[in-house]
Design a protein around this nucleic acid. Structure first.
Lengths: 228, 228
DNA sequence: CGGAAGATGGTACTGAGTACCGTCGAATCG
DNA sequence: CGATTCGACGGTACTCAGTACCATCTTCCG
């Protein structure tokens, strides 16, 4: 048991030192020394100093790509909403580790940037998936794909950050709510590659808003339902 | 005229070398040498090698903050949509320089990450502005603020990238369209901090969608208009 | 036993970024 | 006009992340 995988010891040492002295004050040499290995070994296990903290973004990215590839959902947005859950679940699995990472990324700008860059890769994946799924090369469809991907990621981040801050006791339920909210943002027709021959519906409601203000969104709803 | 501001010469030298040899192959020494200054002078003008390429994100951020602070728009979302135009206009002003930067960020992951991190700062600013503007500390309002900020930024990025790729001849018109699209996404009532005592309105329309699919967004509209 | 593969540790190097110091020139003041 | 001061500059030396290379040691298998 003296060698429970050098990789693990390195991660433990890193987090301990980061907590105690801060990220920038800790050198890779320090980490390797505390882990009882050479400096070379550190870089053999982690590509960079930042990598100790974000070890499996790459793996997650692949996981999501597979999930999307094999997904059979009615709309692209639903498929993506489902896939993003993987990310949240991964963080939840990490438990306390994720929170320690959050404490670090909150303090160190370089780490925050790194995290943001990772999330952007998810978002890009989603955008491409949605765009491809819609199979509509028009500029307007491309914009919608971009908006959808951004919304899904934003909703996920919102829930995740709440949980990381200890403000949420049931993040799973919250992410479901949030995803419903996102789904509601985009009239379903926009998520369909082709409109299924659905039944017509008439809806009426009251609002205190001026008609003027509501008009654009209503037009969207109607146009989205009738055409495209 | 031998010294047209060392800063400018450094930027010119940097871009020239990046174009010719690539970003990673070019060292700060190379840049300083071609600019005819010492290495120290480089770091006096630019905090880092990356900074030569992104010189005024900080300035832009301040500009936007001021614009938001003095903005007098009917809704937070409109104010933010307006502010984000500043960013687009800034890029347009840069003209060819912005395109050269885009060519670099497309090739070099580190630069792309840096750009993304900058954009995330805008987004954060927007999110905080919207949240504060709404003055509603509930979780649901916070999520909406997050979604709105993400949508505005996504729309901006979409138009900007199109222009950078030379796919757009009139990015101003496009960004206006895109922002209208974003506005339409969010029922206006959600953008109001308090409901002005407007007149009630009844609206009816037809759609091919199932009632089921539309229900969440309709409920949002109604609840948003009547309460909140 | 012998050899091959893999993990490890050490050394040396490149390059970014920082700290410090001495110098030069221009503006300013007596 | 001369002295001073202030700011920009250049150079040196340092830290540290990341890379390359090599020597060693273990383990496993024939």
């Amino acid at each position: 048991m003296s060698k429970p995988a050098a990789r693990t010891r390195l991660a433990d040492a890193a987090f301990a030192l980061f907590d105690e002295f801060g990220y920038e004050q800790t050198t890779v040499d320090d980490i390797a020394e505390r882990a009882g290995v050479g400096r070379t070994t550190f870089f053999r296990h982690y590509r960079s100093k930042e990598d100790v903290i974000f070890p499996d973004h790459d793996r997650l990215l692949v996981l999501i790509r597979e999930r999307l590839a094999t997904s059979s959902h009615s709309t692209a947005l639903v498929a993506v909403s489902d896939a993003v859950r993987l990310v949240l679940l991964h963080y939840l699995d990490e438990g306390d580790l994720a929170r320690r990472r959050y404490a670090l990324t909150s303090k160190v700008a370089a780490l925050r940037d790194r995290e943001i860059a990772s999330v952007a890769r998810y978002q890009r994946l989603f955008r491409e998936f949605i765009a491809e799924w819609m199979g509509d090369p028009t500029e307007s469809a491309s914009l919608r794909a971009e908006l959808m991907a951004a919304a899904v990621v934003a909703a996920h981040n919102h829930v995740l950050r709440r949980w990381l801050r200890g403000e949420s006791s049931d993040p799973i339920a919250e992410v479901d709510d949030a995803m419903r909210e996102v789904l509601a943002l985009f009239p379903a027709s926009q998520s369909f590659g082709e409109t299924g021959g659905g039944g017509t519906t008439v809806v009426a409601f009251r609002t205190e808003q001026d008609l003027e203000v509501l008009l654009p969104s209503l037009r969207r709803l109607i146009e989205g339902g009738a055409e495209q």
